[in-house]
Amino acid sequence: MVLILDAMIILWCVSPADKPYAMGFKAVITQLFGSMPSPLYTGIVIDSACTLWGKTPCGQRGACLLYDLPDYRYKLMGLFGFLKGTSFVFYIVAMVTLFRNPNPGNIGDCRGVSGQTGNPEPRPVISDSESQSV
């Protein structure tokens, strides 16, 4: 659902010439702030729940041998809940900002799906007699 919401907002609010750049920029930012640091802070939280560390042959700290399971569970689920809650707050702020305009036909600088603002010009109606004479 989040990917669809992101794409709809970008496709709705960006000029047609800039849509490919906007989608690429969104992908780069998502990878930069979402996918790349997540193993780091997830590993830090998991390591913080360790109660017994092993030793390497060199005498340095090795892999965790025993985790405090309730602590592990609360810290990991707390981290995921915090991240989901933070992203939810940012989405609510974005949606409120997007739909705050009193004119629902023209939302901020965003254009409609067709790329036009306001009502499009009416097309001429061809009657049945005109279409048969052609």
Rank of each mutant, 00 (worst) to 15 (best):
M1V: 15
V2K: 10
V2Q: 12
V2M: 11
L3E: 13
L3S: 12
I4Y: 12
D6G: 02
D6C: 00
A7C: 14
A7P: 11
M8R: 14
M8P: 01
I9H: 01
I9Y: 08
I10G: 00
W12Q: 12
W12S: 10
V14Y: 05
V14W: 05
D18F: 06
D18W: 06
D18V: 01
K19W: 09
P20M: 02
P20Y: 03
Y21V: 11
Y21N: 13
Y21I: 11
A22F: 07
M23P: 02
K26G: 05
A27N: 13
I29P: 02
T30N: 12
Q31F: 15
L32W: 04
G34F: 00
G34C: 01
S35W: 13
M36K: 12
P37N: 03
P37C: 08
P37W: 02
Y41V: 04
Y41K: 02
T42C: 00
T42H: 01
G43I: 03
I44F: 06
D47F: 13
A49S: 12
L52D: 14
W53I: 03
W53P: 01
K55L: 12
P57Q: 08
C58H: 15
C58K: 15
G59R: 06
G62K: 05
G62H: 08
C64P: 01
L66T: 13
L66E: 15
L66A: 15
D68K: 03
L69S: 09
P70V: 13
P70A: 14
D71V: 12
Y72V: 04
R73N: 07
R73F: 02
K75G: 01
L76Y: 03
G78C: 03
G78N: 04
G78Y: 04
L79N: 07
L79R: 01
L79E: 07
G81Q: 11
F82N: 06
K84A: 06
F88K: 10
V89H: 06
V89P: 01
F90L: 00
Y91F: 09
I92E: 03
V93E: 07
A94M: 03
V96Y: 02
T97N: 14
R100I: 09
N101Q: 12
N101C: 10
N101I: 01
N101A: 10
P102M: 08
P102T: 09
P102S: 13
P102W: 10
P102C: 09
P104E: 14
P104N: 14
G105K: 06
G105D: 11
N106C: 13
I107M: 14
I107A: 12
G108N: 13
D109P: 03
D109H: 04
C110D: 06
R111T: 02
R111I: 03
R111Y: 04
G112Y: 09
G115L: 02
Q116Y: 10
T117V: 07
T117M: 02
G118T: 01
N119K: 09
N119A: 11
P120S: 09
P120M: 08
P122W: 05
P122F: 08
P124G: 13
P124H: 14
I126H: 14
S127I: 06
D128L: 09
S131D: 04
S133L: 06
V134M: 10
